[in-house]
């Protein structure tokens, strides 16, 4: 079956960093495929700076890979022209992490929604456009009559974030990259918005790449998960397996750090936490997590461990599993259920 979107050995190194000697590798040799006829919801999780937003920016063509290529329907996205390019622009959409950064302060909310409607000819008439806009706003819990006509600075953080989501709902893309789309709304709305995103996937076959650090919501909406750390895949697989039986020391740390909404369940008691400022990040050759890992041994320090299979649908990049078969990085998608 045909590939909708494909990352082929994509590496992104930022060299503008004035003080990093060799630059920062924000994403290292990442490969992943989304199939045309198998829409999925995939979570990309990982701590701050792990390369999640970089992945989103690459996918949207806002930045170019340092190595490797990204294909949309078999064509390199940086070489798309004409109709192909317009199609791609319409079919791949994003909800950005930061609702404060994306809005032009001089345009009203209407502008943000009408421009794509016109550009991509989504409506048959003015009235139809208005209907579509109102429908999208309502489904993220906003009252169109209150919101339309307002400027970004007249909205609360969560309201801006929801306008981003409404825009995505309106465009009904093939691929939606949602970078922390609900981080600024309350639990109740969060549930409602994630349900709309799930509906978009279920009813309109949209594949969603859900970028988040919130493993609980990820668990609820996604089919699969990729855990990044310093640009490298630490663990990946079926979301149920990874969340319930994390194998990589880093994933275990993440799960242990989930703040539970339960006063009797205290925050992570695992003593493996190492402060980030104490870790030396010399772009070491071995496992990226070695500086913080309680199980580190000599064999961790030479090359980044490959992805070892730790289950039918689960892999971990860790020498603790070096007796298990290796999954080539290019076949990551094999362990990601749809």
């Amino acid at each position: 079956m045909a590939n909708l979107l494909e990352f082929r050995n994509v590496t992104k190194t930022y060299t503008r960093g004035y003080f990093a000697e060799a630059g920062t590798t924000a994403l290292a040799d990442f490969s992943m495929t989304l199939k045309e006829d198998e829409p999925t919801i995939m979570t990309v999780a990982g701590e701050s700076g792990s390369g999640k937003t970089t992945l989103a920016m690459l996918l949207l063509g806002f930045i170019d890979p340092t190595k490797g290529e990204i294909l949309y329907k078999g064509k390199n996205i940086n070489k798309l022209r004409g109709d192909d390019r317009l199609n791609y622009r319409r079919e791949v959409q994003a909800v950005f992490q930061d609702p404060f950064a994306v809005f032009n302060p001089f345009y009203t909310v209407d502008h943000l929604l009408t421009v794509p409607i016109e550009k991509f000819k989504l409506a048959k008439s003015k009235a139809d456009a208005r209907n579509k806009m109102e429908e999208a706003l309502s489904s993220v819990g906003l009252r169109p009559e209150d919101i339309l006509g307002r400027f970004p600075h007249q909205l609360s953080g969560g309201q801006r974030q929801r306008i981003n989501v409404a825009r995505a709902l309106l465009l009904k893309p093939r691929v939606l990259v949602a970078d922390e789309p609900v981080s600024m709304v309350d639990a109740s709305l969060r549930a409602n918005i994630l349900e709309s995103l799930r509906g978009l996937h279920r009813d309109h076959g949209v594949s969603i790449i859900y970028i988040t650090h919130d493993l609980t919501t990820a668990y609820h909406v996604a089919n699969s998960i990729v855990v990044l750390y310093k640009g490298g895949v630490m663990e990946a697989g079926d979301i149920d397996n990874v969340i319930q039986k994390p194998q990589h020391p880093y994933t275990r740390l993440l799960i242990d750090s989930i703040p539970w909404p339960d006063v009797d369940r205290r925050w992570g008691s695992d003593g493996m936490m190492v402060k980030e400022s104490e870790t030396t990040d010399k772009g070491g050759k071995g496992c990226r997590f070695a500086a913080r890992c309680p199980h580190v041994k000599d064999s961790c320090l030479h090359i980044p461990p490959p992805l070892y299979r730790v289950g039918q649908t689960q892999v971990a990049s860790c020498v603790l599993y070096d007796n298990n078969p290796v999954l080539p990085a290019t076949q990551l998608t094999d362990v990601l259920p749809v």
Partner: peptide, 14 residues
């Protein structure tokens, strides 16, 4: 005001 809403759980905790 939402100091950690953009952070991952490990950093949040820190």
């Amino acid at each position: 005001d939402e100091p950690t809403s953009a952070l991952d759980v490990v950093t949040q905790r820190q």
